[in-house]
Amino acid sequence: MTTDTTPALSFRRYPSTTALQCFETAARHLSFTHAAQELHMTQSAISKQVAQLEEMLNIALFYRTSHRISLTPAGKTYYLEVLNILKHIEVATTTLMSHTDNTEVLSIVSHPTLCSRWLIPILKNFNDRHPLIRLDIQEQAQPFFYEDQKVDIAFLYGDGIWSGMEALKLFDEHCIAVCCPAYLEDNLLSHQALSAGHATDVTLLHIRSRPSAWYEYFKQQDISIDGTFVGPCFDTFHTCIAAALHGHGIALVPQRLVTPELEAGSLVQVWDYASKGRGAYYMAYPLSHGRAHKTKVMIDWVKSVLE
Score class of each variant (00 low, 15 high):
Thr2Gln: 07
Thr2Leu: 10
Asp4Ser: 03
Tyr14Leu: 09
Thr18Leu: 11
Thr18Gln: 12
Cys22Gln: 09
Ala26Cys: 12
Arg28Gln: 03
Arg28Pro: 00
His29Pro: 07
His29Val: 05
Ser31Pro: 11
Phe32Ser: 06
Phe32Trp: 04
Phe32Val: 03
Glu38Trp: 09
Glu38Ile: 06
Leu39Asp: 02
Ser47Ala: 09
Val50Gln: 08
Gln52Asp: 14
Leu53Phe: 00
Glu54Ala: 01
Asn58Ile: 05
His67Arg: 02
Ala74Leu: 14
Gly75Val: 00
Thr77Met: 12
Glu81Leu: 13
Leu83Lys: 11
Asn84Trp: 11
Ile85Asn: 08
Leu86Ile: 05
Leu86Glu: 11
Leu86Arg: 02
Lys87Phe: 08
Glu90Ser: 14
Ala92Tyr: 15
Thr95Lys: 12
Leu96Phe: 10
Ser98Phe: 09
Ser98Asp: 08
Asn102His: 13
Thr103Leu: 02
Glu104Arg: 15
Ser107Ala: 13
Ser107Thr: 12
Ile108Trp: 15
Pro112Arg: 15
Ser116Val: 13
Ser116Lys: 08
Arg117Tyr: 15
Trp118Asn: 06
Ile120Cys: 08
Pro121Cys: 05
Ile122Phe: 06
Lys124Trp: 06
Lys124Ser: 08
Asn125Tyr: 09
Asp128Val: 06
Pro131Phe: 06
Ile133Val: 11
Leu135Ser: 05
Asp136Ile: 03
Gln138Asn: 11
Gln140Tyr: 14
Gln140Asn: 14
Phe144Asn: 05
Phe145Ser: 10
Lys150Trp: 12
Val151Phe: 15
Gly160His: 02
Gly164Met: 08
Glu166Asp: 15
Glu166Asn: 12
Lys169Val: 07
Glu173Gln: 04
His174Trp: 00
Cys175Ser: 12
Cys175Trp: 03
Ala177Gln: 00
Pro181Leu: 02
Glu185Val: 08
Asp186Ile: 03
Ser190Lys: 07
His191Trp: 10
His191Cys: 04
Gln192Ser: 13
Leu194Tyr: 07
Ala196Tyr: 14
Ala199Val: 12
Thr200Phe: 04
Thr200Ile: 02
Thr203Cys: 15
Arg208Asn: 10
Ser209Leu: 07
Ser212Lys: 09
Trp214Gly: 00
Glu216Val: 07
Glu216Ala: 09
Gln220Phe: 02
Gln221Tyr: 00
Asp222Val: 10
Ile223Gly: 00
Ser224Asn: 12
Ile225Trp: 05
Asp226Phe: 09
Gly227Ile: 02
Gly231His: 13
Phe234Ser: 02
Phe234Cys: 01
Thr239Pro: 11
Thr239Phe: 10
Cys240Glu: 13
Ala243Phe: 14
Ala243Met: 12
Gly247Thr: 00
Gly247Trp: 00
Gly247Glu: 03
Gly249His: 03
Gly249Leu: 01
Pro254His: 04
Glu261Leu: 10
Leu262Met: 04
Glu263Lys: 10
Ser266Gly: 04
Ser266Asp: 09
Ser266Asn: 10
Ala274Asp: 00
Ser275Val: 01
Tyr282Asn: 01
Pro286Thr: 04
Pro286Trp: 03
Pro286Arg: 12
Pro286Cys: 08
Arg291Thr: 12
Thr295Lys: 07
Thr295Trp: 01
Thr295Tyr: 12
Ile299His: 10
Trp301Ser: 04
Ser304Cys: 01
